[in-house]
Design a protein around this nucleic acid. Structure first.
Length: 631
RNA sequence: GGGCCAGUAGCUCAGCUGGAUAGAGCACCUCCCUUCUAAGGAGGCGGUCAAAGGUUCGAAUCCUUUCUGGCUCACCA
């Protein structure tokens, strides 16, 4: 209807204003709640053109439009705002259109380009935590939203399965795992531990032993015993140690950290880990077997976590496969003059013209850095998928700078698709107790959290739900659906870009702006529909203010889906749905449905309810949240 | 120090392509289950939109400066 009004105004602007107007002068907004009307045209922009008062301008435009557009029932002008009231039949027609479309709001499948969405991308040494939950839910949801916008989507992740850190947990397992009565080291099978948890345990163990060893080295040094250490190291220690003299406590802490790093580099443990990495790169059979085995444990563990999360991937990339990629591209870039080589042989890109620094793309020893790999992986992906149009990287905002550089490099290398790469940068998840830090043990484990949330959904549902007659399996599914729905909604309802506070108590809340609140409304509508049986036909009846509000809101769903796609924001979907549910609950309370005697009115209300349930379902699906028939 | 991001009610967040008297939820205080699921609804309390300037008919929204918090600026990933 905005479109029609706009067309009429533009087509008749000579007659109305005396000259051709620009489209951007025509600004619509929602009518304020306390003002009569459904749609508002801002008339300040026209006041100057017409050289009359806002009131007269509004009256003139309003009358003109009402004469030509039948859906305008009436209008009023209040202080520079022209408010139109739209016919009830217009809204009923809209409802009819919505009712006829089982995937209302979604664009035609695969009608648009192919986009790859990368998310999760964990480190195989650490079990998934709360931050990964935000990442996974976000990535999955954005992928679903893009699909709903007609894109073909490839969901992917890159698994960080190589490097010195992997060798650390492998080494710790070999050295420190106790043996059972059969003489075997700990495995997921013989301990019952989840694979990722077991490996994570040894990563932590490495760190513990490593720090202890570094500490004893420092103690040695401080007691003046330096035998067995390199002269250069000793000199460096003495330099650092003496530089502490007369410094502020803060500066001393910094120097102590440097000393610690120095000592860490002298530990036998780190040396062994480094040797292991060399062996791994040389494909030493023993090391490789150990690596494959332990990674297998981790993947099995992650798999079960992903299942619980309800996320999946179409294609996996492993760093062990991709880390050598990109080196050729660096050579190419050197030839093109995009990169330059320093005396020591390291290769750099100068981004000072773009307001950034020089950035390393290849080490002096010729090995790849993170950036090299990312350039290579991106190019590789476009080779893997010939119709690929762009990549969305779901990665925390601490890597904003990295992605800015990555996209610039890709652009300078001449890849036209670089402009379609997007860093879906999201904020950290904070706890009421402060930041999550693995060292301080304040990390919230993903598996634990999901179990907690499902468990509390179970308690609350048993207390007040309508679950009589359900099988145990159905009940479990329901508890899971409510718990996970609550958690996902909680993490997705805030703007992805923003840092958010995770309050464990709030996350299992059922009232207010929560997943279960929305699910409850859906269940309630479904119950209503079951009792109603045949809904009847949608006839031309007069509609109440409550009903009209809902119909208005329903019609907006498609543009919300489109906005959510453009902004990569599930939060828009969440807020829209919350608004819809509030409107419906208000209506439900105020208007009788099943007991309405007028059959045509009853049918209209039932069909309206049915379509609210449908849009709730369609919207929540975009967040990866399921909705129940009963709860 | 340079760059990026944020600051809205006691708390958690919407609103930010400039528009009418800044909205929700939680918390706190009243009401409403002889109508369909009360995990609901109606109402109340609560704001110098960090601060100061500027642009504009109009600023939470745009610009400048300041303050506060976070992230980042590795031959780590």
């Amino acid at each position: 209807m905005e479109k029609e009004i706009k067309e009429v105004l533009i087509a008749n602007s000579e007659a109305l204003f005396g000259f051709q107007i620009e489209e951007k002068l025509i600004q619509f907004q929602k009518t304020r709640k306390d003002v009569e009307g459904d749609l508002t045209l801002v008339i300040f922009p026209f006041v100057k053109l017409l050289k009359v008062s806002p009131l007269d301008a509004g009256e003139k435009i309003g009358t003109f439009l009402q004469d030509r557009l039948s859906f305008i029932q009436e209008f009023n002008v209040v202080s520079g705002f022209l408010n139109f009231t739209i016919n009830g039949s217009y809204w009923l027609n809209k409802l009819k259109v919505i009712a006829a479309d089982s995937s209302f709001g979604y664009a035609v499948k695969n009608s648009k380009s192919t986009i790859m969405v990368e998310y999760s991308s964990p480190n195989t040494n650490k079990p998934l935590h709360l931050g990964h939950l935000r990442n996974n839910f976000l990535g999955y949801s954005v992928a679903e939203i893009l699909k709903a916008n007609g894109h073909n989507v490839v969901k992917t992740q890159i698994i960080n399965d190589r490097g010195i850190h992997i060798c650390k947990s492998m080494l710790a397992w070999e050295k420190f795992s106790p043996l059972n009565e059969k003489g075997e080291r700990e495995t997921p099978e013989n301990t019952g531990l989840k694979g990722d948890k077991l490996v994570g345990k040894y990563y932590v163990e490495f760190d513990k032993q490593f720090n202890a060893e570094a500490k004893s080295i420092i103690d040695l040094w401080e007691s003046g015993s330096f035998s067995g250490f390199d002269d250069a190291i000793i000199a460096e220690f003495n330099r650092l140690d003496s530089s502490k003299e007369g410094k502020e406590p803060k500066a001393i802490t910094g120097i102590d950290a440097k000393i610690k790093d120095l000592a860490k580099n002298q530990t036998a443990l780190l040396l062994e880990a480094k040797q292991m990495l060399v062996k791994w790169e040389g494909r030493d059979p023993q090391v490789y077997l150990l690596w494959t085995t332990m990674n297998g444990w981790v993947y099995a563990g992650f798999e079960s976590t992903y299942n619980a999360m309800g996320v999946d991937f179409d294609k996996l990339y492993y760093e062990s496969d991709t880390f050598v990629l990109g080196k050729d591209l660096v050579t190419e870039g050197l030839d093109k003059g995009v990169f330059f080589k320093k005396e020591d042989g390291s290769v750099w890109i100068d981004l000072s013209e773009d307001g950034l620094d020089e950035k390393l793309v290849l080490r002096s020893d010729g090995t790849a850095v993170y950036m090299t790999q990312d350039v290579g992986t991106a190019v590789d992906r476009f080779k893997d998928y010939s119709d690929l149009d762009g990549i969305i990287y779901t990665v925390g905002n601490e890597q904003d700078y990295h992605f800015k550089v990555l996209f610039l490099i890709l652009d300078k290398l001449g890849y036209a698709w670089a402009k379609n790469c997007y860093h879906l940068s999201y904020g950290m998840v904070d706890l009421p107790t402060g930041k999550m830090k693995s060292r301080e043990g304040t990390v919230v484990d993903a598996d634990d959290l999901m179990a907690d949330v499902v468990n509390s959904a179970k308690e609350m549902t048993q207390e007040r739900g309508h679950i009589d007659g359900m099988t145990d399996k159905e009940k479990e599914e329901l508890f899971n659906l409510i718990g996970m729905g609550g958690l996902k909604y909680y993490l997705l309802k805030v703007d992805p870009k923003k840092r958010m506070m995770f309050n464990p108590e709030e996350s299992i809340e059922l009232n207010g702006n929560t997943g279960p609140f929305i699910q409850y409304t859906h269940a309630r509508i479904k119950s209503l529909l079951r009792k109603a049986g045949n809904l009847g036909e949608l006839k031309l009846v007069s509609i109440s203010a409550e009903e009209k509000e809902i119909m208005k809101h329903l019609t907006e769903f498609s543009s919300v889906v489109s906005e959510a796609g453009k902004n990569h924001s599930p939060a828009l979907i969440a807020n829209y749905t919350y608004e819809l549910v509030k409107l419906y609950n208000h209506f439900y309370q105020a208007v009788p449905i099943l007991i309405e005697e007028d059959q045509e009115l009853k049918s209209m209300r039932l069909i309206l309810s049915e379509n609210v349930a449908k849009v709730i379902y369609l919207a929540m699906r975009l967040l990866g949240v399921n909705v129940p028939e009963k709860m």
